[in-house]
Simulated scan of single mutants.
Amino acid sequence: MPHFDLPLDELRAYKPALTALDDFDAFWEKTLAEAAEHDLDARFEPVDTPLTAVDTFDVTYAGFGGHPVKGWLILPADTTEPLPVVVEYIGYGGGRGLPHTHLRWAAAGFAHFVMDTRGQGSGHSVGDTPDPVGSGPAASGHMTRGIQDPYTYYYRRVYTDAVRAVEAARSHPLVDASRTAVTGGSQGGGIAIAVAGLVPDLRAAAPDVPFLCHFGRAATLTERHPYREIALYLKAHIGEDERVFRTLSYFDGINFAARATAPGLFSAALEDLTCPPSTVFAAYNHWAGTERSMEVYAFNDHEGGGPFQQAVQLQWLPGHLKG
């Protein structure tokens, strides 16, 4: 696929207007306050695995609405002192998967918390967290569930679960709560951006080819799912454009990026049809933190830098989490 979006020099300067409405902050303060009314009730059950170099815990905690959310906590074996923690969110359609697929951060000496994504986990990796909330009419997938109103929208629940995942990770006695980073690829990257805008004391955020950014451009620029789900919904629900994009404004990564002050490490791929590079740069260029960097993969699609980007993260994160 040849380059289809803006030239790189224009991408580096691309900073579209924010879409946050006047009540954006109040909406999220109310949402998180309601979640806080439920006891976090984070439980960590040891898991017997053949992985001798790590200790694994099956996690359950109360997310949005007090609903149980699953996760993994993976620590270097025989940890005795609190460690900095990397909280990771999963790409679209996937769940927390199996413990042996999450060894990189523990091998680097960190605690690693992996959040399951409610209602997903039947695509590229298995999940264990249902979404007990129904919705109005929706296109196939998750993007338009409850999109008629921001209070019923699916990602209100997911972003709340993600903030509570940070709280759950920090509650473990072998986690140093003062040294927390968030990361994820694609959907996980978009969730990491949202959390960075909602949790003010993170040490770092590393969103990789992030999804859930600059919805208005994404929905009209690419035919690839998941953004295509928005267009398909509007194809059927003619005349609802304004209402749909009003809802999406409360969940747009560019609006969270403008509130994120932690150091940020992004990546974008210039042939990415799933998360077009202009949507990634839109969030990056609005990032409020004074320290930020962008890795660009000129001839890659949505796989981005893959293991090369992981190597960059492994070099970058320790400087923000250790010491």
Rank of each mutant, 00 (worst) to 15 (best):
Y227R: 11
G185A: 12
H320V: 05
G253I: 05
A204K: 01
D241V: 07
S186K: 13
D23L: 03
E29Q: 15
E242F: 03
Y153A: 02
V133L: 12
I230D: 05
G127T: 04
H67M: 04
A283P: 01
L6D: 09
F266C: 04
F256Q: 08
S186I: 03
V59W: 10
A257E: 07
H102E: 12
L202W: 13
L32K: 06
L21C: 03
W105P: 04
F245Y: 15
R156S: 05
V209E: 08
P132V: 10
D9Y: 07
G146H: 13
D272C: 04
C213E: 02
D128Q: 06
T56I: 15
C213P: 03
A268R: 10
W28K: 11
Y159H: 08
R170W: 01
D131R: 10
S125Q: 12
P82W: 14
Q148E: 15
T19Y: 10
R259K: 14
A17L: 12
Y233C: 02
A42D: 11
G94S: 14
A269T: 02
I230N: 04
Y155F: 15
D5T: 07
P150L: 01
V312T: 12
P207W: 09
T183Y: 00
D39Q: 03
C213I: 11
H38A: 14
R203H: 04
A17W: 02
A169P: 06
G146D: 01
Y227H: 13
E29C: 13
L18K: 04
A231N: 06
G305N: 14
V158G: 10
K15L: 07
S178R: 15
V59S: 07
A194P: 11
F57I: 06
P7G: 10
V199H: 13
A20C: 09
T31M: 11
K15C: 09
H100M: 03
G306Y: 03
Q315C: 09
F245P: 09
V126M: 11
R157M: 08
E37S: 13
A196I: 02
A219N: 08
A311M: 12
L202K: 10
A205V: 15
F57S: 07
G127V: 00
F27A: 05
D39S: 07
D272V: 10
R145S: 05
G66T: 09
F215Y: 15
H225N: 12
P130W: 05
M294A: 08
W72K: 05
L51N: 00
E271Y: 01
D58W: 03
T129D: 13
R145D: 00
Y233W: 08
D58E: 11
A260F: 09
D39E: 10
P226M: 09
F110G: 02
T279C: 14
D48F: 12
T261F: 06
G185W: 02
D5P: 00
P207N: 06
V182P: 04
P150N: 03
G71K: 13
A206T: 00
M294I: 15
V199I: 11
R43V: 15
G264D: 00
T60H: 12
A257G: 09
V175Q: 09
R164I: 04
Q310M: 10
D116R: 08
A62V: 02
G95M: 09
A269V: 02
H320P: 00
V87F: 07
G123S: 14
A268F: 11
G134I: 03
R259G: 10
P137N: 08
D48L: 14
R43S: 13
V163D: 09
A194L: 06
T117M: 06
H286Y: 04
I191S: 05
A181S: 03
D131A: 03
H237A: 15
